[in-house]
Nucleic acid binder design. Structure first.
Lengths: 225, 225
DNA sequence: TATGGCTCTTAACAATTAGATAACAATTAC
DNA sequence: GTAATTGTTATCTAATTGTTAAGAGCCATA
């Protein structure tokens, strides 16, 4: 099954971890686990999960504390946090989930419920994140139609060209290293020589003109502001 | 705020009713309330809400029973039902929400969660209900008759072809990925190879001409504007 | 219950095009 | 001036899409 998202599950009970993990993997998620908040943080930092499923009650660093730290870290702007709340726990405590959790799921967990809920949350997320279009300078870079508009003019870019321009234009002025670009545009397991980027830059310049993309020698490329 | 939909809230606890009602009204919904299933039915019949928010546990006629009746009534084909489940309730019972509910929300209710969730559900609904016929370019794509009119000419498409064209034409210019298309035209549990789409596209082009549907390589198809 | 016609799906092969690379030219930094 | 870096072009190939045809299933009608 194809991969549809990364989920980090944090719970101190090994069998619950196992149970959830199994069900989410079956659904096609890439699942990571940690037994408490403290150990979860570095994993979260590393894998940048789309969603963190967090038990509220844990020994070393509890869910609420963990959630607060996550929400305070701009690395996790794009990360959803969902609490797992044992129903025996007092809800007044969970009310304290104004720590910033996005949702919560009550134990005991039914697999179908869990999966349905997480699917719904992540679907929402994907939708929200998919920045539909960027307007910079006289360009309107539109993901919906995969077209670049300049005034009345429509410019068609090839897919990689589009993604590359989109990336650069998403932070005008910021210099992206080739490494950077490869990671974002080509993805994790990159199998291409980084000079390939140069060729794509060339093609974009050919189609749009030289004034949009600048070269910072020894560093990378940027969208000129 | 403009009106974005009618919601009927059914719960036996007056303060919860009040709380939900307040938050939904603030969001722009037209809100109706009832204290139990029995009283809810005639109201539902009358106002034809877009969505019914239903407490599972209620004295006179509980949520599951109410839901069954609603789902059995063709008047409510277009009505979404969402359960409110108190945490103390046994989830095995909620499993019985195979009574046909479309979603459920756990108590205690967080306003943000409630509103976000309902918005999402209703957005989906509005989209589904949208326009029985579309006029784009020189085409009149008519759901009633499943025919395409081009001037005086009537063009007959097969069902899947029609649905596919209808989808693309519902957002002219927007590129739909194959995944996208499968989800919307074929439905959730898709059992077909995505190349099937290509063949349908071919047939549509054969019947209508090549000028309507464009290919965005590596991405998907779109209705050309 | 055959028969024929339709729709849908798939597989196989052809055509096309985006993308990758290498090779060489130009430019820049030191 | 030289080495390092980037620009540019041409070529090749791998991925994607187009196209055709064949078979399965369905339904209406004889």
């Amino acid at each position: 099954m194809e991969n549809i998202g990364k989920i980090l599950v944090v719970d101190d009970e090994a069998d619950i971890l196992e149970f959830i993990s199994y069900n989410l993997k079956k659904e096609g998620y890439e699942v990571y686990t940690a037994p408490n908040g403290k150990e979860a943080m570095p994993i979260a930092k590393k894998v940048k999960p789309d969603l963190i499923l967090l038990d509220v009650m844990m020994p070393v660093m509890d869910g609420i504390e963990t959630c607060k730290r996550i929400k305070a870290d701009s690395d996790f702007d794009q990360t959803y946090v969902v609490f797992l709340t044992a129903r025996s726990e007092d809800y007044s405590e969970i009310e304290g989930l104004d720590a910033g959790a996005d949702d919560y799921i009550a134990k005991p967990i039914k697999p179908k419920v869990l999966v349905t809920r997480l699917n719904a949350i992540l679907r929402r997320k994907i939708k929200e994140l998919a920045a539909p279009s960027i307007k910079v300078k006289d360009l309107h870079i539109d993901r919906e139609s995969f077209l670049i508009y300049r005034g009345e003019q429509k410019i068609q870019l090839a897919r990689k060209e589009f993604e590359l321009l989109f990336l650069l234009a998403s932070k005008p002025g910021k210099v992206f290293t080739r490494e950077n670009i490869l990671e974002k545009v080509w993805g994790d397991e990159v199998l291409v020589v980084d000079r390939t980027i140069d060729v794509h830059i060339r093609k974009i310049r050919e189609k749009l003109g030289d004034e949009y993309i600048g070269t910072v020698k020894g560093v990378g490329y940027k969208f000129e502001v």
